[in-house]
C-alpha cells in the first residue's frame, strides 16, 4: 500500500532536487540538524523506523554513499540490506524492471538506488510501492549530496541566500553539479561553474549559472568553492590532454584560492584526487576545507530523508 506523504515533505520519493521547493529543502535540513547532534552522542540509535526495511541497491561501486545510507537507516532503527548488483542477476539477463518487481514483492519501506544511467531510478520508482531515494543516477541527479552540501554551508554561513558558489571541474558528467545547481538556485544563492569547455554540457547557462573558463576569474570573491572529482577515464575520451595540464589550469591550489573571499570555504564530494583537482595542502586546511564535515552531514541528511519519506505522522508524534 502507498503511504500518505508527510505534510512536511509532500513527496513519495526523493528522485532529484528538481521539483522540490525551498520549504521541502528546509524541512529536510531542519530535521537533519537534530540528527547531527544525535550522531555525536554516545547512544546514536533511535527506533523511529523500527520494523522498517530498507534496501540499498547499488549498480555502481560506492563505498561512501552506501555506508552513509546504511548508517543512516540503522541509526533510525530500520533493517538495512545492501545489494551490489555487479555480478548478480542483472548480468544474467534480469532487467531493471524485473529487479524492481522482485524487490517490490518483498514489501520494502524504502529503496535507495544508485545506477550508472540517467533516468534509471525514475524507471524503477514507477514500479515500486515504497519510497525510492536516488543515490545518484548517471549524470542526472544526486539529491542527498546537494542536501548535505546545503546543510554543511548553512551551518557555517547561517544561510545559503545571497552566497556566491563556484562549482569547478567536470560539470558535463557530474550529477553532483546538477543537483547542487538546482538546490542553490532554489535557495537563492548565485551559482558559477568553472571548467574547460570540453567538460561543460550544452546550454548549461540555462540552468541558472554563470559560466567561467578561467579559474581565477571564476573564483573571484566567491563564498564557497565546490570542487568536483575528475574521473580518470575522462583522459581516454579526449576531454582533456593530461592531468598535468588540468591541474595547472583547474586544480585548486593556494594561488587560485587567494582569488576567493578570505573566508571562502572549500567543498568536495569525495573521494578526492590529490594533485589532480585539488592540492593536498588546500584539501587538508582545517580552517577552509569542509570536506570531512560534508561526510558527517551526509549521514544526518540521509537520516532526515529516510525519516521524512518513511515515517507516518502518528509515529512522528510519539517518537
Amino acid at each position: 500500500m502507498d503511504k500518505s506523504p508527510s505534510p512536511l515533505f509532500p513527496h513519495r520519493h526523493l528522485l532529484g532536487i528538481d521539483g522540490l521547493k525551498a520549504d521541502d529543502i528546509n524541512a529536510i535540513l531542519d530535521l537533519a540538524e537534530g540528527y547531527v547532534e544525535q550522531n555525536r552522542a554516545d547512544d546514536k540509535k533511535r527506533s523511529v523506523l523500527r520494523g522498517r526495511t530498507i534496501i540499498n541497491l547499488f549498480f555502481e561501486n560506492s563505498t561512501r554513499t552506501r555506508t552513509s545510507f546504511e548508517l543512516a537507516g540503522k541509526r533510525l532503527g530500520a533493517d538495512v540490506i545492501n545489494m551490489s548488483v555487479d555480478g548478480t542477476s542483472i548480468k544474467k539477463g534480469e532487467t531493471l524492471i524485473d529487479t524492481a518487481m522482485t524487490l517490490n514483492a518483498m514489501h520494502l519501506d524504502a529503496l535507495v538506488v544508485r545506477h550508472h544511467e540517467s533516468g534509471a531510478v525514475h524507471l524503477l520508482a514507477d514500479k515500486m510501492n515504497c519510497a525510492v531515494i536516488n543515490a545518484g543516477d548517471g549524470a542526472h541527479e544526486h539529491p542527498t549530496q546537494a542536501l548535505l552540501d546545503a546543510l554543511t554551508i548553512r551551518r557555517r554561513k547561517g544561510s545559503l541566500k545571497g552566497l556566491t558558489v563556484a562549482i569547478c571541474g567536470d560539470i558535463l558528467h557530474s550529477r553532483v553539479a546538477r543537483s547542487n545547481i538546482a538546490l542553490l538556485n532554489i535557495m537563492g544563492a548565485r551559482v558559477r561553474v568553472v571548467a574547460p569547455r570540453t567538460l561543460l554540457p550544452a546550454q548549461i547557462e540555462r540552468l541558472g549559472v554563470e559560466v567561467f573558463h578561467d579559474m581565477a576569474r571564476g573564483l573571484a570573491d566567491v563564498d564557497i568553492i565546490m570542487m568536483l572529482r575528475l574521473q580518470m577515464e575522462r583522459m581516454n575520451g579526449n576531454f582533456l590532454p593530461s592531468l598535468r595540464e588540468y591541474f595547472h589550469f583547474y586544480g585548486l591550489d593556494q594561488a587560485k584560492l587567494a582569488k576567493a573571499k578570505p573566508d571562502a570555504l572549500i567543498m568536495h564530494p569525495g573521494p578526492i584526487n590529490r594533485g589532480v583537482e585539488i592540492d593536498s595542502a588546500v584539501a587538508d586546511d582545517i580552517d577552509r576545507s569542509l570536506i570531512l564535515g560534508q561526510v558527517e552531514m551526509g549521514v544526518a541528511v540521509r537520516m532526515a530523508c529516510l525519516d521524512l519519506l518513511m515515517r507516518t505522522d502518528a509515529k512522528r508524534n510519539d517518537a
Partner: peptide, 15 residues
C-alpha cells in the same frame, strides 16, 4: 539532441 533538455536530464547529447 544536445541542449538544455539533454543537460537537465543528464543524457549524452548529439550536436
Amino acid at each position: 539532441t544536445e541542449g538544455e533538455i539533454a543537460t537537465r536530464l543528464g543524457l549524452p547529447g548529439i550536436t
